[in-house]
């Protein structure tokens, strides 16, 4: 397995390991960015206003129950006639990953805001903060630890699930797993699995570091 990874042949060409890692991170990053754009504002709104709590929880749980592999095949077949290009594979892949990433981001943002000490919010109001001011200067900073943990679990799930892109002809590290299985090259398969695991751990570590530098010291105590 180690020798498979270190074999120079596997570092060049159309299936080069760095290229596959790049594709893997690109799918994941696009999906996470879209998921943040969707999940974060909804979480903020619901946490701040306490409106639509039931709907957010219900939607999040329903989304979590979706089987990613089945969904990606279904979407590829649905989108097939719409795009003649590779978009017919890329868009379904991103949709599936977004649906996977939205629930943890959305629910953790909501839960983080909702769990802020009401005394702090009242004090801020009393000092003349507007509703938006309360959200941005009091609730959001206090909720950051939970928001980061939501982002972390979303990232982990997306990076490990982005392997399914390879099932619908796209790249990424899933290529090694799926091609390895099809061609009975089990070293290639194991190498793919190990690389996905390693990539996930590295990215997780980076987010952990980032959260360390952005969180208020007061919250870390």
């Amino acid at each position: 397995m180690i020798s498979w990874i270190t074999n120079p042949q596997h570092w060049t060409g159309s299936d080069a390991i760095p290229l596959l890692i790049g594709q893997h991170l690109a799918y994941s990053a696009v999906a996470l960015a879209i998921a943040v754009l969707i999940g974060f504002p909804i979480g903020l709104y619901v946490g701040h206003t306490r409106r639509g709590v039931v709907m957010v929880a219900g939607t999040a749980n329903a989304l979590r129950a979706l089987p990613s592999l089945g969904l990606i095949v279904l979407l590829v077949i649905l989108f097939g006639p719409v795009f003649a290009s590779d978009l017919a594979f890329l868009i379904p892949c991103v949709i599936v990953l977004v649906l996977l990433a939205v629930p943890p981001i959305m629910t953790n943002t909501y839960a983080g805001i909702a769990a802020v000490d009401p005394a702090a919010v009242d004090a801020a109001r009393g000092m003349g903060y507007s509703s938006l001011g309360v959200l941005l200067h009091v609730e959001l900073p206090c909720a950051l630890p939970l928001i980061f943990s939501g982002l972390r679990s979303a990232t982990l799930q997306v990076i490990s699930t982005a392997t399914i892109a390879a099932y619908v002809s796209l790249g990424g590290l899933g290529r090694l797993i799926i091609d390895g299985l099809a061609q009975r090259d089990y070293f290639e398969m194991v190498a793919g699995a190990v690389l996905v695991g390693a990539l996930t751990l590295v990215v997780d570590l980076l987010i952990a570091l980032a959260s360390r530098f952005t969180l208020s010291r007061g919250l870390m105590r």
Binding site: V76, I77, S85, S169
Partner: peptide, 12 residues
């Protein structure tokens, strides 16, 4: 299977 047929019929 369905993926191959869909890609062939739709021109990918």
């Amino acid at each position: 299977g369905p993926l191959t047929l869909s890609a062939l019929v739709n021109g990918q």
